[in-house]
Design a protein around this nucleic acid. Structure first.
Lengths: 209, 209, 209, 209
DNA sequence: GATGAATGAGGGTTCATTCAT
DNA sequence: AATGAATGAACCCTCATTCAT
């Protein structure tokens, strides 16, 4: 049987694979370190046999990486979908922060994803290789931001005297800062709520005409 | 014998411990994943026996964490020392970016440290516990930034209508973005050089009067 | 359903069983170690489902053992058939060596069979048990030789001052030596061709009047 | 630490390695299939930790192969030693059969060794590779026979009209036949005893002047 | 004090066998 | 009847930690 690549469409996913992905993501949401996740943890939580995981994946790493790609792709698609309903840069930025903040599970996963992208862990290395091949793929958050900014510039909402590169990195960095604050503050995100308007205002002040 | 805590002053460090720290940091500089480092890797590179490491530390994690704390404390002291020779917020910011960029080996460590602080890896967890107890300690980079900003505000250079918290997080995020860009661009840091003036300018525009 | 015993006549063999046997023998001819053969290898090569194999056999060992018995029985029948057309001991011996050499696939199997008969591998143990029960059966090569020698003695061609037992073991050992030499020398059997006349001559000199 | 190669001299063998070898050979003497021996079987019988085995060997196969080479080399040296005290071909042949028969444990090993040499099992493949490199080494039984025959020819005791190759193969085959008969007959070797004089006589009649 | 040989618990992976379809 | 997805027991190997020297 052909193994899972991580690029399957939502509806192509075998049921067991969905269960595996869910299990991985839940484990991450519970704060378990990627490096200490055991195959038996995953399959047990997924409610399937250990051998079954290996019918679909070659290694433990594959399972985890594909689960992450799945989660991040899904998150980005959903955010894209939300953003497509808004037509100004300011609204889009606001919605972006709101969307990213909304789902606990995805947020956790996204943080993990970002970590791994800048990480030298076993999964990190593999993920980065994937990402290098995937510049054009759904799981590329930078691309999403780039498109948003370019569209904003076309509409005349976003300044043009700053390099696109800088604006995108800057946005990403602010978004991650915000996520980090959300993450740190588990008692309800009050610090995040306090800082959010300033972060947004900083973005608008610097990048909007 | 009392074990090493990680808070020893430079001159209090036993020779063997220094060798262990150096070994850990070199391994990291070589790009080895923290989760993959073996005790035997460390002791071999340190040129000492495995048992000796356990005379000074209780667990492998302790060795790595203390090595990181050591490296980051040292880095922050050195940066503090540099900054103390400058007396305007703008100069300090510029020097901060320059200093951070300069120390190649330490920069790698700093990135690792940052990762782990926002990470759920074995070391991460332990580091975060440490950090929670260490709000006042040398290895706290946020504290350094906070002091810088407060001093800047006292001197009337830094705006006061924004929350201190926001300014500090924002600075940290920009610094990390810069580091990430440096890191990514191994062919000589040209992207970092291109973006640097914009990042600095963004800081000054937003936070300086 | 009654399981396969390995004693079915050629025409009693269900089609699927024949496919299984062929698959096992082909795998062996490919040089795969008996201990390494996987059920999935066999069924895949046989072009049938894994479950189906277990409709006919209880264990993997059964499949392999029966395939071997099938192959060796077939080989011995065919040799018997050939030998029945010759009426002197010398001719029979010559034909025996020729026949054994001819069947390339079967030779491989025969070597495997011999190995296992003197082996303590999983299959070996089982085969030997079988053989102990099967003294009278088709797959018994020693029996074939014994009959040949006895007939030779009756016709006055073979010496009688040596124990039948010794003559038979000696013949078997020479035959196996010959096979081993054929086997070793894949570049065309020149060594086998060189040694063959001496082996035959040794047999005749020692055992023929 | 450097791993064991299997070519260590008796006195160079670390104690633990000796224990491992002994354990392997005892397991074989007990009739356990090489392919089913577990590392834990070996180390348990050797009375050492599982990990220790891997300090000296890289894989389970290595342990078994080296144990076999050790046993066979030892056996052959001992036989050589015995033979060196006899100076006629006839005596040497008699002593050879006696010596080979004597060492019950080693005999078992020798049969295993022979099996593996003509086998495609995991160990077999590796052993054969070794043997290909070891034409000149101690564990080469053919070499021992070759030397014996050549010396016999020089002394004028052994016929010269037959190819050396044939004589050696023939001797080996007779020796193995004898061993196989010894092996089969666990009730006291009476069959072996009955056949032995005929086998020896056959050798003398064919190869001695 | 310093060492590194020895340990053995633990986890990734395989594969014979089963059973729902 | 035939299938092959699912299972989980089993086993090799690693490596943090200990402790005799």
């Amino acid at each position: 049987m052909g193994k899972i690549t991580g690029y399957e469409k939502e509806h192509e996913l075998p049921q067991k694979v969905r269960q595996l992905y869910t299990a991985v993501l839940e484990l991450m949401a519970e704060g378990i370190d990627v490096n200490t996740i055991k195959v038996s943890d995953i399959t047990q939580k997924a409610g399937i046999g250990k051998g079954t995981a290996y019918d679909y994946f070659d290694t433990k790493e594959d399972i985890i990486i594909c689960a992450l790609i799945y989660a991040v792709s899904g998150m980005i698609s959903r955010i894209k979908e939300v953003l497509s309903r808004y037509h100004t840069f300011r609204e889009q930025i606001e919605q972006l922060f709101a969307a990213v903040e909304k789902e606990m599970l995805e947020r956790e996963c996204f943080m993990r994803f970002v970590h791994m992208m800048t990480d030298s862990s076993f999964c990190g290395k593999a993920l980065q290789q994937r990402a290098a091949l995937d510049k054009h793929r759904e799981c590329n958050a930078m691309l999403l931001l780039t498109e948003m900014v370019e569209a904003g510039q076309k509409r005349g909402e976003v300044v043009e005297h700053l390099p696109l590169e800088y604006i995108v990195y800057s946005l990403m960095s602010k978004l991650l800062t915000y996520l980090a604050v959300c993450d740190k503050n588990e008692e309800g995100g009050s610090k995040a709520q306090r800082l959010k308007p300033y972060i947004l205002e900083g973005v608008f002040a610097e990048f909007c005409r």
